[in-house]
Design a binder for these strands. Structure first.
Lengths: 123, 123
DNA sequence: GTCAAGGGCAGGCAAATACCTGCATGATGA
DNA sequence: TCATCATGCAGGTATTTGCCTGCCCTTGAC
């Protein structure tokens, strides 16, 4: 695989402010999560290809893709009259680092306490 | 710390269907994320205590807490006339396991490809 | 050039959302 | 008991959201 400008932009997160709010709002819709799933299956699909799986007007899919792009979760590239869509895993990772980890700490503490308690209740 | 019925419910996720949609929708609002942050800081706060940090009518905060509880992100317990709110990290972990990880794979692949490419371009 | 394919843009509409006010209810303490 | 504190419940409204239809622009094949 060749590294191109698009991938560099993806890795460095150039054209997407790491706005947690946009990322969460983008992920809040099932249609948009389906779109991301479709792109995980096969990256670089066109609008038309994505529409084929969605039982929805093309324009609605365009709106959803726009929201995903604003959140930085996908990036696009034009090839002739087609528009290709690529997934961008970076914002989700940043949300994980900044957001999910602190809850993970609480979860592990709970597990620890539970384990301690169960051991204390042994015979 | 003593393990009680509430904690067991939290760990086993009794009263909360692991509905990814509700979790994402619940996390999509900044007020609700602030509420979770407040509970991470100090667990077991009452409605009134949480309201004190939020420049918003009490009833609105109640609504937000209800949505968080429906998503299984918090659980509550009554103490006299007060209602205590506890954070529940389990649904967020499930969302991470089911959702963030597959993107993490894509991210690491991108990093790998980028590394390979940069090494290939060396002197 | 001509024409179909792929996509963009604008406007509209119904439902969901995020606030609010007003009043009712149960618990606490003098 | 009775006043007060913490919370619940029932609407009400303005904004946002998700979907649509209709029309226009570019691209590629002939």
């Amino acid at each position: 695989m060749q590294v191109n400008a698009c991938m560099i932009a993806v890795m460095t997160n150039e054209n997407a402010p790491p706005d947690a709010d946009r990322v969460f709002k983008a992920l809040a819709d099932p249609t948009r999560r389906t779109l991301l799933d479709l792109l995980v299956e096969r990256n670089g699909q066109t609008l038309g290809q994505l529409c084929a799986n969605l039982a929805m007007a093309r324009q609605s899919v365009t709106q959803h893709l726009g929201i995903l792009e604003d959140a930085g979760l996908i990036s696009t590239r034009r090839r002739g009259r087609e528009k290709l869509h690529f997934i961008n895993p970076v914002p989700l990772h940043e949300v994980y680092v900044r957001w999910v980890r602190k809850f993970e700490r609480q979860r592990l503490d709970l597990l620890h306490d539970l384990k301690q308690d169960l051991e204390g209740d042994g015979p």
